[in-house]
Structures are given as structure tokens and as C-alpha cells.
């Protein structure tokens, strides 16, 4: 046997081993999702047994959850929270990120460090006084305490946008200025179109953060069932609506669906965005 075929054989084995591992991992990552889907289709009684495969396929479960719980209200609230918070965040955070990336001013370094600090701070640290502020305005029991602050910038989004904006070569904005564009017009006309991938990424991140958020709505909207979001409803689904695991899993699947669908369409944006979060 020549040396060459030994090497070849080694690479083939390696190839097989890698793919076997990858397939095993894929099964582990997908397993829970499949199990949730199967349970969602079981009958009430079967969901209380350890049988894996539905005896009867109860597609009606998906209709039943809409009757049992105000899912449409939860979806509406979740959308309201996610859309408004994302829009507000973009309006307020882009100029800040731009200034941090491009302007030269005193305290610029300090400002950036403070952005990172607030980004890293657990939200529970300042929860009590902020709750009191909203209680004073009688806005507890609604989602507004989670939406309105987005008008004042979001540290994580500022950080991410700034990381991207510093990579845009200065020549572009300089050229725009030569053409007589002011700073703001340069931002809108030249920088924003170039930063589209980053903006799309932070918008998606913000949207999904809100969509998945549990702590925030629990703190502020937990008291008022009319303001509940999908996350809140889901966590209390089984006990408040007196249903079994199958319906709970059907609702779980429903909450996951939009996220997964959007991900398939916007996969690239996501992946690029996640890469931005790592430091280079």
C-alpha cells in the first residue's frame, strides 16, 4: 500500500467521523423541537403518558388553544411591544452610534465605555427605582415602561451599530462633505445605506429580544391580563388555562413559529449580526 492511499483512507475516515458527529449533534439539536411538535398533536390523556408517537393526530389542538386562551391578544401585545420598541430604538440609537463612531469630541472614549457598562449591567440592578418612576405615571400594568425607554437609545444596539460604522471607510463621508452635504445628510444619504446590514441585524435582534422577553413583561405587564405577551401567557399557560401538556406544547410551537420562519428568510442578516457582537 502506498503512502498516498493511507493518507486518503485517513481523510475518508475523518470525513465519515465528522459527518457522523454532525448528524448526531443535529439530531440532539432538533430532537426537542420534534418532541414538542409530536406532543402538540396528542390527545389530552396521551400527553400524560410516556408514549412518543401520537395515537391519534389531533390537529384540532391548534384551534383549541385559541379558544382556551386569549392568544390573539397576546400576539397583538407582543407585536406592539416588539415593533414599537424596535422602531424607537432605531430612531434614537443610530445617531448616537454614528457620533461615537465618527465624531471627535471630548469624552468620546468615556462615552463609549459607559455605553458598554450600561449594556453589561443586569437589568435587575436598577429595577426598583425605575419601577417607581413608572408607578408614579400609572404606567405599570402596561407595556409602555418597556417601549418608551427605547426612545432614549439602547446600549447594546448602539454598541453593535458603532462597531459596524467604524469599519466604513472615512473617504465615503468625506466625499459627501466635499459635495456639500451636512453631517446629518451625510448620515442619512451615505452612511445609512451602507450600514443597512448592521441596521437590519440590530433591528432583528431587538425585535426578537422583545418577542422572547419574559422578565420585562413579568415585571410591568404581569398584573394586567389585557397586557400579557406571548411569553407571559406561555409560562402560565398550563396553570391558568387548565390545560394539559399537549395544548401547552401547541402554544409553545406557535410562539416559536414566527421566529423560526423569519430566521429562514433572514438567516444571513442574523449570522452577520451575531459575528458583530464578537470583538475583533
Amino acid at each position: 500500500m502506498t503512502r498516498r492511499s493511507v493518507v486518503r483512507r485517513g481523510t475518508v475516515l475523518l470525513w465519515v467521523a465528522r459527518h457522523a458527529l454532525a448528524i448526531a449533534l443535529a439530531l440532539m439539536f432538533l430532537g426537542p423541537l420534534v418532541f414538542i411538535a409530536l406532543t402538540a398533536l396528542m390527545s389530552d390523556r396521551q400527553a400524560l403518558t410516556s408514549d412518543l408517537w401520537p395515537h391519534t393526530w389531533n390537529w384540532g389542538n391548534f384551534a383549541e388553544i385559541f379558544e382556551k386562551a386569549p392568544l390573539l391578544t397576546w400576539i397583538r401585545n407582543t407585536l406592539l411591544y416588539s415593533v414599537l420598541a424596535t422602531a424607537f430604538m432605531l430612531v434614537s440609537s443610530i445617531p448616537v452610534a454614528y457620533a461615537l463612531a465618527r465624531f471627535r469630541f471630548r469624552g468620546r472614549r468615556l462615552a463609549f465605555l459607559l455605553v458598554i457598562t450600561t449594556m453589561m449591567l443586569p437589568p435587575q440592578v436598577v429595577a426598583v427605582p425605575i419601577y417607581l418612576i413608572w408607578a408614579r405615571f400609572h404606567l405599570t400594568g402596561t407595556l409602555w415602561p418597556l417601549i418608551l425607554p427605547m426612545l432614549l437609545g439602547d446600549a447594546f444596539s448602539i454598541f453593535l451599530l458603532r462597531q459596524f460604522l467604524v469599519t466604513i471607510p472615512r473617504e465615503y463621508s468625506d466625499a459627501a462633505k466635499v459635495d456639500g452635504c451636512g453631517e446629518f445628510r451625510t448620515l442619512v444619504r451615505v452612511i445609512l445605506p451602507m450600514a443597512r446590514p448592521a441596521i437590519a441585524a440590530v433591528a432583528l435582534f431587538q425585535f426578537f429580544y422583545c418577542w422572547n422577553d419574559y422578565y420585562g413583561p413579568l415585571l410591568y405587564a404581569g398584573t394586567d391580563l389585557d397586557s400579557w405577551t406571548l411569553s407571559l401567557g406561555l409560562a402560565a399557560f398550563r396553570s391558568v388555562h387548565r390545560v394539559q401538556w399537549n395544548l401547552t406544547m401547541a402554544a409553545t410551537l406557535l410562539a416559536m413559529a414566527p421566529v423560526i420562519i423569519v430566521f429562514f428568510f433572514a438567516q444571513k442578516v442574523f449570522i452577520e449580526g451575531v459575528k458583530l457582537t464578537g470583538v475583533k
Binding site: 419601577y131 408607578a135 400609572h138 400594568g141 402596561t142 398584573t223
Partner: peptide, 15 residues
């Protein structure tokens, strides 16, 4: 389906 905790928090929160 309202729990005591929700009543307490809503009253204390002024709503």
C-alpha cells in the same frame, strides 16, 4: 384567573 400577586402588585403600582 387572577392571582393574589397580581392584585397586590396592581394596587401598589397604582393601577
Amino acid at each position: 384567573a387572577v392571582q393574589d400577586g397580581q392584585i397586590l402588585q396592581s394596587v401598589r403600582g397604582g393601577n
